[in-house]
C-alpha cells in the first residue's frame, strides 16, 4: 500500500494513529505524574480528531456522538479528575523511578511488532484504507498493560488502564467505524464509573496504607505469615 495513493483524510488518520502510538510510548517513559496526565489528555485529543475524521470519511454520523463523548471523557473529565486528585493527595510533583527503562522501551517496541504479526489476518480482510491501524490500536492496548505491570504508583496504573481503553476505542473506530450506539454509550458509562471509583480507591489506599505505592499492597499471600 502506497501512502500517496490514499486520500488526504486517510493519510491524516494514519498520521494520527502513529501519534497515538507515540503518546503511548511517552506515557510509558514519563516519570512525573502531572506530565503523564497531560500526555494522557493529549492522547485523548488525538483520538478525538481521528474519530472526527473517520466520521466524515465514512459518513456515519453517529461517530460524531462517540467523538463528542471522547472529547468530554478522555480530554476533559478524566484528566481533570486525575489532576485534581493528585493535587489533593499532594503527589503531583512526585517522581516515580522506573527500573530498567531501556528494557521496558525495547519490550514495548517488540509488542508493536507482535501486534502487527497478530493483526495480519485482519489486515488482509479490511476494506478500509486505515486497516493497519488495527495493529496500532492493539499495540496501544498492550503498552497500556505493560504500563500497569511495570509501574508501582496507583495513579500510573490507572492512566495505563485508561490508555488501554483508548486503544480499544481506537480499534472500534478504525476497524468498524464504531460499535452500535447502545454499546458505545454503555462502554462510555462504564469508563465514567470506573474513573470515579478509581478516585474513591485512591483515598482508601492512602488512608489505609499511607501511600499510593501498590508495592505496599502485599498482605495477601498463599502462605501463612
Amino acid at each position: 500500500m502506497l501512502i500517496a495513493t490514499l486520500s488526504l483524510p486517510e493519510q491524516v488518520v494514519l498520521m494520527l494513529a502513529a501519534l497515538i502510538l507515540l503518546s503511548s510510548f511517552l506515557m510509558l517513559a514519563q516519570v512525573r505524574l502531572d506530565s503523564m496526565i497531560n500526555t494522557f489528555a493529549l492522547q485523548g485529543l488525538l483520538l478525538f480528531f481521528a474519530t472526527l475524521i473517520m466520521a466524515l470519511i465514512s459518513g456515519k454520523y453517529q461517530l460524531l456522538i462517540s467523538a463528542a463523548l471522547t472529547l468530554f471523557l478522555k480530554v476533559f473529565f478524566i484528566p481533570n479528575k486525575l489532576r485534581g486528585l493528585v493535587v489533593r493527595l499532594d503527589i503531583n510533583r512526585e517522581i516515580e523511578s522506573i527500573t530498567n527503562p531501556s528494557l521496558i522501551m525495547l519490550f514495548a517496541a517488540s509488542l508493536v511488532l507482535f501486534s502487527y504479526y497478530v493483526a495480519l489476518p485482519i489486515r488482509a480482510l479490511s476494506l478500509l484504507a486505515t486497516r493497519n491501524t488495527i495493529a496500532i490500536s492493539l499495540a496501544v492496548v498492550l503498552i497500556g498493560m505493560l504500563m500497569i505491570i511495570s509501574r508501582r504508583k496507583a495513579v500510573t496504573q490507572v492512566v495505563g488502564f485508561m490508555s488501554m481503553e483508548n486503544g480499544l476505542f481506537f480499534a472500534a473506530v478504525v476497524a468498524t467505524c464504531g460499535m452500535p450506539m447502545v454499546v458505545e454509550l454503555g462502554i462510555a458509562f462504564d469508563v465514567l464509573v470506573a474513573a470515579i471509583l478509581f478516585g474513591v480507591f485512591f483515598f482508601h489506599i492512602r488512608t489505609e496504607i499511607g501511600s499510593l505505592d501498590t508495592d505496599r499492597l502485599n498482605h495477601l499471600t498463599e502462605v501463612e505469615k
Binding site: A154, A175, A194
Partner: peptide, 27 residues
C-alpha cells in the same frame, strides 16, 4: 483494600481483552 484494588485492575485489564475480542467479532 488490597483485594479490591487487585480485583479492579486484574479484572479490568482482563475484560478489556474481551472487548477487543468483541470488536473483532463485530469486524
Amino acid at each position: 483494600i488490597e483485594a479490591g484494588w487487585k480485583y479492579f485492575i486484574i479484572c479490568g485489564v482482563g475484560i478489556s481483552q474481551a472487548l477487543f475480542g468483541t470488536i473483532l467479532v463485530y469486524f
